[in-house]
């Protein structure tokens, strides 16, 4: 079994409704390493909710999500360590600096932490100079860049990007493209967005509005 086939995800007939209102139903797909999927749809169609369900942050009303490693399902307890996620509703810690945030997420994930390694990661998104500035004082674009780095620092097999380009300039968008291209070599990516450029990175599209 080669590297590309080590990880896969199966989303089986997922439905979600809130207090009787159906958001979406019958969502099914499978991805293997190298796949990039886009989830599109109108505002309120459930793109972010679907990503939260895949991440295990929310229970579906029906259906199931399984991540497999060499064909063996990964337990739900372990799932967080196999995925990284960026979403507009997420925040890192305002009272910590950029590099302190990265150090914290290294340690809490059980990864070895080295300042130089974190500075290299920050350099990738152009935040080296702002490394020791409080996250709360970052601009919205800078916050988004740090959130991207936080999501990939453990090199997850599954990367979930909810509107990844929000608040980003052209340099930031280039970083996203770079991250998706790297992920394409080693893992799976699911992007929830309506932006043409972001949807354009995907091989397949699921439109929740249809």
């Amino acid at each position: 079994m080669n590297e590309r086939n080590q990880y896969s995800i199966k989303v089986d007939n997922i439905s979600k409704h809130f207090t009787g209102n159906l958001l979406f139903k019958g969502i099914s797909f499978q991805l293997i390493c190298g796949d990039v999927l886009a989830i599109a749809g109108w505002n309120g169609s459930g793109k972010s909710t679907l990503l939260r369900i895949i991440a295990g942050l929310m229970r579906p009303s029906a259906g199931d999500v399984e991540i497999f490693h060499k064909g063996t399902p990964i337990s739900k307890d372990e799932r967080p360590f196999f995925l990284g996620m960026v979403a507009p509703a997420f925040s890192l810690y305002n009272e910590l600096t950029g590099i302190e945030n990265l150090a914290f997420f290294h340690k809490v994930r059980g990864l070895s932490y080295e300042r130089q390694g974190c500075l290299t990661l920050l350099d990738r998104v152009g935040l080296t100079v702002e490394a020791d500035k409080l996250y709360g004082k970052y601009s919205s674009g800078m916050k988004q860049r740090l959130k991207l780095i936080q999501a990939i620092l453990h090199k997850p097999p599954l990367l979930l990007l909810d509107e990844p380009g929000s608040n980003l300039d052209s340099k930031g968008m280039a970083v996203i493209e770079d991250i998706i291209n790297e992920q394409r070599l080693f893992g799976m990516t699911i992007i929830a967005s309506n932006e043409k450029r972001e949807v354009g990175y995907a091989d397949r599209i699921i439109n929740l509005s249809e």
């Binding site: 080590q6 009272e95 990864l111």
Partner: peptide, 29 residues
């Protein structure tokens, strides 16, 4: 979980180390 590209945890990672990371972050904050 420790093989391949996706090395998500170091061998020395324990609940206590991770709990200490949360504690230090909270105290610092």
């Amino acid at each position: 979980m420790k093989k391949g590209r996706w090395v998500t945890r170091t061998g020395s990672s324990t609940y206590l180390n991770e709990a200490l990371a949360v504690w230090i972050r909270d105290v610092r904050g």
